[in-house]
Every structure is written in C-alpha cells, then in structure tokens.
Amino acid sequence: MTITEERLDQVELQDLNGLAKTDIDDVLDYVHVPTAKIPPYLELYDRYLRQRWNVNDLDFTQDRIDWTERMNDDSRNSFLSIASGFHHGERQVEAELAPLFFGIPEDYKVFLTSHLEDEARHTVFFDRFYRDVVGLEGDGIMDVLDGSWGYIQETFVGPFGLLAYLTDDLRRDPYNKHLQMKYATTYMIWIEGVLALSVMKITLNYARDFKVLPAYYTGFTATCRDEARHVQGGMRFVRQLLDEDPNYVTDIHDTLRTLLTMGAARSGYVYYEPLGWSEERVQALFMDQLHKKLAMVGVSLPADLENMLSMVKPTLAGG
C-alpha cells in the first residue's frame, strides 16, 4: 500500500501530542520513497528543525502504572528482550557516528549534525524509560545500560561489533569510499533500515493494540520518524557513491554477506508471541525492509544473498 499524501502530511507535521495518535505503520511507510524523491540533505535538515522533539516533555507516570499493574511477566520479559536491543543500539549508533563526518559531502555534514543529536536524544529516551518505567537505577547512562545487558543476546554483538570496528577503520582512513560504503551499508541500510525499522513495529504495535505505555509509544514513534530522516539521508549518500562509481555495489554485497552470515546465528529464543507476533512474521519484515531499502538505491541482491536472507534468525533488535 502506498501512503497517501494526506497521511504523509500527518506524519510529517505532527508534534509529540499528535504523534501519540499517529499509526506506526504510517511512519514506517513514510520512510520509503523512490530514489528520485529522496530529499536533499538540507531539506532533511529542515525537516529535523521542524520535527525535533524534547525528550523531557514525556511523562512516564501512566507507563509505570501499566508496566507494574497491567502487563504480566511474559509480556514484560518479551518487551525487554526487544526494547533492550534499542536501549543498547541507540547508544551504539550515537557513539559510532562521528568518524563519518570527515569524508562526506558538505551538505551531508550539516544534516549529520542533526542525526547525531537525534541519536543522543534517543539514548536519553531509553535511559528515561528504563529508569522511570522498568525501574533500573544507576549514576549515569552506562550504569543503566549495564542493567539491561542481561536481556541482550550474544548475537547482538555481530552487527554492532562490526559497526564499532568499521567505525575504527573509518577513523583511520575517513576518505576511503569503499570503507564509507561498508559503513553506510552496516549502519544505514542494515541496522537502521532493516533491524530498527522492523523491530520498532513490534513493541509499538503492542503498546497501540493493548493501549499501554503511552509515553513510550509517543517517544518511540517520534524516534521512528527521526530514523526515517536518517535512513533517507543514508540512502541518498549510498546512491551518490554508486553514481560516482557503480563498482561500489560490491562493497554493499560484501558487507551484506558478512551481516547475513552473522544473522543466521542465534543463541536464544525471543518469544514474540506475548506481544502478538511470530518469528516467521518478523523474518518476513526483515526481508521486506531490506528489499525496500535496496530498491531506494537501485541495488538488487544476487541469488546467494537472497538465499542467505531467507535464513536470517530475527532475534536482533536495532538502533
């Protein structure tokens, strides 16, 4: 289904109060535009200025009541298994962005400042949620992250460790366009474009359908709208690199080959059922999201990668 102009405007223009009533599916549709319609970087920056929200405007009082009185142990555990991936993922994508600044187009640098600020705000959003709703304590951001680490599967380290190490590669050689492409494939296509946008839907649909966690729903829907800008900026950058040299597509494929190899591993089950989902449905979302991102940049998957994609275990969250 293609999002209508009216619904797109609704997603585009809402403030936090409006986002509380916005359907997450509309926000997810809002991400995907054809290559020719991906907004220029400065237009994305302008959107940021209009869409920026204040994490301190959220009141988690009702969420705390829902968490302790209306959700059961199974729901809380499933929720934390998924949300903790974002708790850690947002920190990772905040901490790993800086080296990209050096070697990118000037307009993208301006937009990337907003991207970085968004990720810091998302990190604080999850910090507030884990403190005010889940009840974790700690002196700083890392204390609370350590508190939710137990919900993270070993396989989480695959894509996020790869991002950390590619960040270090890029720090050492920031103008290397092969490295930039590998980094953008890991960060903007896979982590933000596939993992995050797939798994966001699960906890948000749960909160919407069961009418719980209103501040979480509002803040995370706003987060999702922010991610739409990041993904569009990233896809524009990927497309620019491909326009410079179509051979960079090999870097996309090689990076996906590593990500999909890791994606076939899982160390434990995530029980989606208490939140109204199944593993098969999440896996289908992963496949759909990757195909949509690649369509945005005009890249197809060779047969071996299509086959690997069908074997990905959807146990990871994103950032």
Binding site: Q92, W149, I152, E154, T155, F156, V157, G158, F160, G161, L162, A164, Y165, L166, D168, D169, K182, D254, T255, R257, T258, T261, M262, A265, S267
Partner: peptide, 27 residues
Amino acid sequence: GKMVMYRKLMLEKGDTLQFFTAAFYWT
C-alpha cells in the same frame, strides 16, 4: 561481547568483514 562492542579490544590488523564472518567463533 562488550570487549568487542566497546572496542576494548580493537582489530589492528586484518580485514574487518572477513573477521566478522566468524564473529561468534571469536567471542
């Protein structure tokens, strides 16, 4: 996992994509 994710151990030689193809073997 944190040793890798927080870069307390860094890959100072070798191809990063190749290394992560065996990520969980290394951890």
